[in-house]
Write a protein that binds this DNA or RNA. Structure first.
Lengths: 341, 341
DNA sequence: CTGTTAGCGCATTCAT
DNA sequence: ATGAATGCGCTAACAG
């Protein structure tokens, strides 16, 4: 970056301002001068310094994506959508793994703002996230992604978790299951609670014919937590014949627990997951799951954010619909089970 | 970002220069003035604008990571390492999905440079990548990651693919397999070829007792390509008793082909993958694979890059060792197979 | 349509 | 140890 706008101006016998106008496609430039300037640009191989430009315009065309962990397939898929849409719109995307650490997250946000990042997508936020509320009050451009903070004035891209839970419930009921279980994520993860609510309500609607349901809270959100929860589940008497897990990883853990216990899936236990990550496709049998449109969610998040950046305007809220993908881990309830082995 | 260094200077009754010195921890500031300035900073809630700073210093403390696809678990894991190490060193990380498109990649790089990105990590590069060579000649700070461009003067973090291939070969030989296959990625993917070379050489060393090996080139690098290759493989007569796939996804595809054909793994066919992504853990049985230290590779890549950014100096080359992780898809060759079903 | 004049917010000489 | 002056490379009024 050595040749500057000034060099171009001299080469083309015009002023800085004219070069700048050409660069920014201002309509107020005669075609012949535009060409002359363009030639000078090409000849000198001039490439505008966007840092200098950002200092004036206050826009870096950089957005940030904050996620708990980019190596988690769900967030990786979302990130793919975010980056794709950002690139399409002329933005680049800064990625941040914030884990669960609130202080770390605040520090990240602070540095990013000072670096001139135009706006952020939060793939992680608590229900009453102070940081989000502060940024929202300062009207810093934000999109929340798969996590809501009801009190904040920001864009949102959500998935109808309740509807997803209901889909799982109805699927299992239709297969004839009457003794059901759900494994939820620990603590106050809002989306997990919503999935449970939808599941419960759908069961309640159908409760006329003696449906029982038990709810287990896992001790984490990963495969190991699913395995532990699965073991507890399989020890229960009477044992549920079908289980809905709040995410795919938990479901996969439950599959492992079933294998340990020589419980056949789906013959002796039906399992439904949530997310539809690539992991669901490689289990054996492939996991029946409630699919979130991860990539599209990422794209939508960027589009809302950029819309806010460029046009301001009202904050938008997009609620996407999950979808049941029936694969190999669910089957009709069979009252009379053949002896195994 | 409304309060500037100038406001602080007035508040503390000093000049801009002094405030700047305090901000940059210059030793030439009296302790009492430093404190006075610091108080003014705190009182006003001043936060330095890093864009302005970058315009002077030419350093944004932003690095970019270019990968084919962040939703690919291998790159997601690498990205996790990159971002972690970057954060630790005070850098942020811009992520870019460049797919296989050379022109798109060049365009990305161009914009990133103009945005002042300090250096880049290439998780994708051809053997004689023109872009990498150009950047290298312009002495733009670069680290190549899992892909080499021999002629370039840049940092590198590589994995000993040849050694990995050899590990796979020796593992299978030790299990008594004598009729082997390898499924490679298509075209000129250097790492895949190296894995094949290591595999072949290890077999050659042991060739005294009649080892046969066949090499299949898959038509892609994903599960579908593995499935197709697996079908071809299982149709061969005599059929190989063990197969080494150039990556986990291909291996998973082969597992699926085996299932289709009622070929039991590992009883009737042993399968070894390469990478050690999370996907390898959730197949049934879990995939025996050659593990790359993905996260550490990402961290090392950043460290080399930042080292170059801060101290210049010689370009470094780190070669990491892969590791055999024996799981459930490999077993001893059994000449007399019991009738199945 | 084009040129002149000011900055954006900070770092960095060079004096003192 | 501190201050005054200058400029990083560009955009944005405001004239003309």
């Amino acid at each position: 970056m050595r040749v500057t706008i000034y060099d171009v101006a001299r080469e083309a016998n015009v002023s800085l301002a004219t070069v700048s106008r050409v660069l920014n496609n201002s309509p107020h430039v005669r075609e012949s001068t535009r060409r002359r300037v363009q030639e000078a640009i090409d000849k000198l191989g001039f490439e505008p310094n966007l840092v200098a430009s950002a200092l004036m315009t206050k826009r870096t065309r950089l957005v940030a994506l904050l996620v708990p962990d980019i190596s988690n397939p769900f967030y990786a898929e979302v990130a793919r959508g975010v980056e794709d849409a950002a690139a399409e719109l002329g933005y680049n995307c800064v990625i941040c793994n914030v884990g669960g650490d609130t202080a770390k997250q605040a520090e990240y946000v602070n540095v990013l703002r000072r670096k001139g990042i135009d706006g952020m997508i939060f793939g992680t936020a608590n229900y009453d996230d102070k940081l989000v509320l502060d940024l929202s009050r300062g009207s810093y451009p934000l999109t929340l992604m798969a996590r809501d903070v009801p009190a904040a004035e920001v864009n949102r891209v959500l998935v109808d978790d309740g509807a997803g839970g209901a889909m799982a419930a109805r699927h299992l009921l239709e297969l004839g299951h009457r003794r059901l279980a759900m494994v939820t994520e620990p603590g106050g993860i809002h989306s997990s609670q919503e999935r449970a609510r939808g599941f419960r309500e759908a069961l309640d609607e159908a409760a006329r014919d003696g449906v029982e349901a038990v709810y287990l809270e896992a001790e984490g959100s990963d495969i190991a937590a699913g395995l532990a929860a699965g073991r507890r589940l399989l020890d229960m008497t009477p044992r549920p014949t079908a289980v809905f897990a709040a995410n795919d990883l938990l479901a996969i853990g439950i599959l492992q627990a079933a294998r340990e216990a020589d419980t056949r899936v789906p013959d002796d236990l039906s399992v439904v997951g949530f997310d539809g990550t690539v992991m669901a496709d490689v289990t054996q049998p492939p996991l029946t799951t409630i699919v979130q449109p991860m990539r599209d969610m990422g794209k939508a998040a960027v589009r809302l954010l950029v819309e806010t950046l460029q046009n301001g305007g009202e904050h938008q809220r997009i609620v996407m619909s999950p979808e049941l993908r029936v694969a190999g881990t669910t089957a009709a309830y069979r009252p009379a089970r053949p002896a195994a082995n």
